[in-house]
Structures are given as C-alpha cells and as structure tokens.
Computed example of a mutant assay.
Amino acid sequence: MLHIIPFLLANLILIPRFYIVDLASKIGFLSQSSSRLEIQLNHILIHSQIVAYILAAFLLLRKAKRVYLENYAGANIESLNWLLQFTLALSGFYFIALAKNVFKFIEYPHILEWLKIGLFLFELLIISWYLYKALNNPSLFRNVDSKLKLVKDIISEKKQSEQLVTNDKEHSEELVKLKRYMVEKNPFLNPDLTIQDVATDIEMPVRDLSLLINHTLDQHFYDFINSYRIERAMDILRDDTKSKVTILEILYEVGFNSKSSFNTAFKKHTGSTPTAYRKTL
C-alpha cells in the first residue's frame, strides 16, 4: 500500500481536467501535455519514487556487504562487487534518462537529441557488459542465501529469547577447536569457502560459529579466513626454495581468486604489498 501512494496521487490530480471531462477536452489536454502542471507533477512523483528505490538499493547493498563479510571468504565477495557495479551502471542510465525528460520541458531541442543518442549508446553498453559478465563469470549469478543475518541481529534475537549466556570456558574450547581445525585441515585453501562449510566440518551450528568469529574474535569471517591465507603466503615468500614462484601462483595456491583481493588483504595484514614484502627478505 505504501508503494502505491504515488500512483494514486498521480491519478487523483488528473481527475479534474482529464478523467471527468469530455473527449475533446481530453484531446486538448494531451496535445499540450508538456506544459500541463498535472503532467509535470506526475513526472516529479514518478522520479521521486525511483530515486527512493535507488537509495534503498544502495542501503541494501551496504547491509549485504556486512553479511557477506561475516559469512563468505571467496568468490561471493566478487558477486557483491558485481552487484554494486551493476547498480551504479543502472543508476547512471536512469539519471541520463531523467536529464532527457527535464529537457522535454525546456526549449533546447539539440541537447535533447544528444541525450537520446547518449541514452541509446549507454543502454547498448550496459547490455553488452551484462552479457559479457554472464558468459565469462557465471558464478556471479548464482543464488545468495537470503536467510543469512547480521551478527548484531542474531545477538539481539538471543537476548530477546534469553539464550545469550556468556561462558568463557565454552568459548575457549570452541575457539581451540576452530583454530586446530584451521591448522590441521587448511580449509582456507578453498577459494569458495563459506561459514556453512566450516560449521559442518567442526560440527557446530552456523549461528554459534558466526558469533564466535564475528563477535568473540571481533573479526569478519572474510578477514578471519584471509589471515590464514596471508600467513601461508608469507611462509611461501620466505621460503628460499620457492623464490621463483610468482605472486600470481602464490595467491591461487593459498585460496585467493583475484590479484586485487590478494594485494588488499596482504597489505591490510602486513602493511606492505606481496612484492615489497618479498624484496625485504
């Protein structure tokens, strides 16, 4: 009902001079539609609603980023980046269309024509880019678990149900179990590792594991896993027998799937890039 309010308003303002008049008056109204106040108000209502949806999309993406960081440690982060890029592209497309509509009410026909051409070319570019991404990165379009929640929401739910009990001994045992698993099984070498995979392997509920890492350790799952990957990469870089191994080979070996994410994580963990770190050894 909330979403239909602009539509109802848009039609209500058309009642006096369009809906309840005769056919000749309707034709006359439409023939001068660009100068009619009702039509201009309709455009304002429509575009205000679209802008509100665009802002809501970016707010959802910001929340999604936190959910991803708390639950994933690999390719899923690339999916989030792709969603952000695509939303930005569509937003750009919309604002060009908005500018075109504004110039419909202004006496600058040559600018309007250029905007129409620009809109068509931008539309073609977006479609081509979307198809290119879909063909070369099909994993970007796989389903996302919509049931995932932020840790702060899980904590809030547990507090409300009076299930959140701080037990240092229990947390300590779970932490030892988790760290032993990370060292012995090296799950971080899997570039598509998720918190669900780890929870299954160590036989711990996902919610409890998420609280342990994100709340007790005060780390995102993404950073927690990457810290092990970076430590393994540092071991390889320090190994004289592997001095010929390239940075690209190392990043794939330790569980990363892109050079940019590897460099970012390595610099965050050590304060320098992998190449610079190797040179200091």
Rank of each mutant, 00 (worst) to 15 (best):
K149C: 10
H171T: 01
L30K: 06
L37S: 03
S35P: 05
F29N: 07
K279E: 12
E78P: 07
S161A: 06
F224D: 02
I27F: 12
T270D: 03
E162A: 03
N226Q: 11
Q85A: 15
T194R: 15
P205D: 00
V183H: 07
A52Y: 11
D192K: 14
L88W: 10
L211I: 09
L124T: 10
F29G: 03
V67L: 06
S79V: 05
F58S: 04
I247H: 02
K169L: 08
S243M: 14
S227R: 04
I127Q: 01
K100T: 11
G118K: 05
L45V: 01
T246F: 11
K26D: 04
F188D: 12
R232H: 13
K159C: 02
F93C: 11
K185H: 12
K152L: 10
T166P: 09
T273R: 03
Q85D: 13
L150T: 11
E173Y: 09
L88F: 14
F141E: 14
A56L: 15
D145C: 07
I247C: 11
S91A: 11
Y108C: 14
W129I: 10
A64G: 06
I46L: 11
H269M: 12
L121D: 10
S161K: 06
P274R: 02
L61R: 08
D153V: 07
Q49I: 03
K65R: 15
I106R: 06
L211E: 02
G92L: 11
A75H: 14
D153P: 03
K259G: 14
D201V: 04
N42K: 12
S35V: 12
K152H: 12
N136G: 00
A73K: 00
L90W: 10
F93D: 09
S260F: 15
K242L: 15
K185V: 09
Y72P: 08
D22V: 09
K268I: 08
S258L: 06
V21I: 07
K100R: 12
L125V: 12
D153T: 01
K244F: 14
N214D: 05
A24F: 09
R180D: 13
S128A: 15
T246Q: 13
E249C: 02
L12I: 14
T273M: 05
I202E: 08
E78K: 04
D22K: 00
I4A: 12
G255M: 01
Q49D: 13
N42A: 04
L23P: 00
V51D: 11
L140E: 02
K133N: 15
Y68L: 08
A57F: 10
V254C: 09
T216F: 08
P191Y: 09
I54Q: 13
